[in-house]
Computed example of a mutant assay.
Amino acid sequence: MLPEKAQLTCEQQTIQQQVLAFIAAHCRDSQAAVFVLEGDAGTGKSALLSAVFSAVQKQARTSGGKLAGTTNRLLVNHNEMLKIYWEVASQAQWLHKADFQKPTPFINAGHKADVVFIDEAQLLLSQPDPFNRFRQTNQLTELLKLAHVVVLVLDLHQVTKLKSLWTPAMIKQTLAGHVVQRVQLTGQLRMQSPTVAAWVDAFASGRLLPPPHPANYQLRVFEDGVPLYDWIKEMNRQHGLARVLATADFPFRVYTKDPWYVQAGKLRLPWDRVNFTDRPWASQPQTINEVGSIYTIQGFDLNYAGVILGPSVDYEAKTDRITIDPARFEDQTAFRRRPDGTDSTADRTAIIFHVINILLKRGRMGLGLYAVNAALRQRLLAL
């Protein structure tokens, strides 16, 4: 995500005006009108949303503004992303920390808003979750009851849990009867190489292509986790914001005093810990000695990402494709059974591919890979 004053691209500026016009046209509607902004990881959705929200809040808090006196909120169902927005608010004249919340407390409070912005809308719960104090059918339906306009930022390739499993059909059914405008962001802004972004797209769909060798991006494969870590430490010294990440294929328990470790060949590093501070995980210097996960890195831009592909990610020589074994994926909370029965092997496989896609697209300037499974590692090295 980019700070409020970051320069938007021409595509982003055009869409920003479309969103603002949509809000102005529907901010008094009796039934929520919905603007859906879609785009792949790294296309600048959050940066655009931040700019639009700041513009709306400036109008809301300026006497005589088009939206003067309106109440607006930005929601995101991800702790680390919420902290990023809090940092943005601390640097922006028109934003307050209280403008940003998680969806569940906003819904449970029952307070209505004129415009509700939802970043990473694919993380909204799509089933009851009593543990998180959400007992209704799905969060999007509840949010539609509480606003005149809802702005959804959505990427269904970043769904990482069955309890927030959304499909195009589910979105269409939930939005039926509402005024809806859809726009797609297409430009890849995080990864400096479009050819590497296309290679990752293929990888996250199970296809292994010959890796590109762009002049402005480092794509490296390592024989062991130790040289991967050494490379990340050197990139962090040179450029900052370089971190080791991993798929959730290594044992861990939340809220324990003792660390849980990621084993990548000869490398043994502790998992990230629960972050009780207001600073995002990757912006804390000591986390260079930890391994990040989607829980700490989703929505955050790194300069370099060193990604460990764990035991659930393998390779089948006969088909020349990446294979997924959900039984070896340690984040079993991601697979908590749904009452509607939506927890097939295909659903679980898709979630793991989504995790891979998220992790591999974190780095702006470089990506390093180490695969725990020898078959996949050797195939990557051969390519």
Rank of each mutant, 00 (worst) to 15 (best):
F300E: 00
A169F: 12
V221N: 05
N275S: 02
E80N: 01
E234G: 10
K58T: 05
D340K: 06
Q181Y: 10
Q93Y: 14
A25S: 13
E87S: 13
V372S: 02
K66V: 08
F131S: 10
S283W: 01
A109P: 12
W271E: 00
S50G: 14
A327C: 13
A51C: 15
Q136R: 08
H178M: 01
L74R: 05
L8V: 00
M1N: 04
S90Y: 04
A113T: 09
D278G: 15
G110Q: 05
G206I: 02
L143C: 06
K266Y: 10
A51I: 08
Q93T: 10
M1Y: 05
I288L: 03
T323K: 13
G265L: 05
G225W: 01
T43K: 12
L140M: 09
S344I: 03
H354W: 04
A68S: 09
T195I: 09
V179C: 10
G69W: 09
R207E: 12
K102A: 13
N77D: 14
F35D: 07
F35A: 02
R73E: 06
L309Y: 00
Q16V: 06
Q127D: 11
F353Y: 12
N289M: 07
L165M: 06
P311C: 12
L228D: 00
N357R: 10
W199N: 00
S283P: 13
W231D: 07
L241H: 05
R243L: 01
V149Y: 04
Q18S: 15
T14M: 15
A375V: 11
N216D: 13
P211D: 08
A98E: 13
F300Y: 11
H26E: 03
T70I: 07
Q91E: 09
P168D: 08
D331I: 06
S193G: 11
L185R: 01
D29Y: 09
L74M: 13
L241R: 09
W199R: 06
P285G: 14
F106R: 09
L189M: 12
V355D: 02
L74D: 03
L82V: 01
T71W: 11
A375D: 15
V254N: 13
T14S: 15
A68R: 11
V313P: 08
L241A: 06
V52S: 00
H96T: 08
S283H: 13
T287P: 02
G240Q: 02
D331L: 07
F335Q: 01
T9I: 08
A248Y: 01
R220T: 11
T137R: 14
V19I: 12
F222W: 01
L95R: 00
T160K: 12
A197P: 03
L383W: 13
N357W: 01
F222P: 05
P285I: 02
Q332L: 09
L185T: 10
Q17W: 15
N216P: 04
W94P: 03
R338D: 05
V149M: 10
Q139W: 05
K83S: 06
E4N: 15
L219F: 06
L95S: 03
A204F: 01
F203R: 03
V313L: 07
L208S: 02
P130M: 06
C10P: 14
Q173I: 09
H148V: 00
V226P: 08
Q181N: 14
R364C: 06
L380R: 04
P130Y: 03
D119Y: 03
Q18W: 12
I107N: 09
P311V: 07
P214T: 01
N77C: 12
L162C: 06
S90A: 11
E290R: 10
G44P: 04
Q378P: 05
L208A: 00
C10F: 13
D99Y: 07
